[in-house]
Design a protein around this nucleic acid. Structure first.
Lengths: 124, 124
DNA sequence: CCCTTCGTACTAAAAAATTAGTATGGAGAC
DNA sequence: GTCTCCATACTAATTTTTTAGTACGAAGGG
């Protein structure tokens, strides 16, 4: 039974980002990181992290006092899935129209493109 | 009170796509287009379209028999907002990491990038 | 006229996402 | 020991999203 490949929700992603940034962390760690940016209850964070564990994004193991959670999936992979999902929903799966939008929206310059091209050459 | 600039949900976008494709259309028109791809109730489509009207994505005016809905916002603009939103949520607002993902995920080739570059030159 | 078809308004229920409260227990402070 | 802090499990309220049902009116066919 291969778990359906869902994508994390907005809030879930926010927490995953913290865990990816911090490395293995307790609920409190994540709570405090989030707290700096917005009001949220400790238990809310815990709930979210448990959901993330159920969904297979986090794993927990007993630590000194509290459980320590760590990312079960690498950041790149998750983000890649989100990009795929977005591409499918919004652009019927093709990346070029997205690229065009990025360029037209001034989010990318010709220089950016050339940079990436150069990276591609080096990478292969 | 300037309406909060939300982004259409998945289902909402699906309907908007149909309307953008068909041009002014009745609920039935949209219903039938959607129906070809998946099971859905007529009233569901109507509900969605009325929500879209409330949200300012569609406008309706009385037609021969039924209301005729037409897009209140151009496709490009809406999609652009969705891209912006996605960029903000997933990539903290920067487009380059997204581009890198697209390339690494083989969604874009070096040729694609060169094509777009050429288009940029011509366009300006 | 009566029936069927198409349409609208109103209502609502199911599902998912978001946020948080309550009860309870361990462990150190004093 | 008792109090306080931190943690967890369990439960739940709220909001948003998604899907659809019900009641009822207008219009044409026969």
């Amino acid at each position: 039974m291969k778990t359906k490949n869902t994508t994390p929700t907005t809030q879930e992603l926010e927490i995953m980002k913290v865990v990816w940034a911090l490395g293995p962390a307790t609920v409190r760690d994540v709570y405090e990181a989030l707290r700096r940016r917005r009001k949220v209850a400790y238990t809310t964070v815990m709930t979210m992290m448990n959901i993330l564990e159920q969904k297979g994004y986090l794993k927990k193991k007993p630590g000194e006092r509290a459980y320590v959670y760590h990312a079960a999936k690498p950041r790149k992979q998750v983000i890649r899935n989100m990009v795929e999902d977005f591409l499918g929903r919004v652009f019927d799966g093709s990346a070029r129209p997205l690229l065009v939008h990025l360029v037209e929206g001034r989010r990318l310059s010709a220089d950016d493109l050339r940079d990436i091209e150069r990276m591609m050459e080096e990478g292969e």
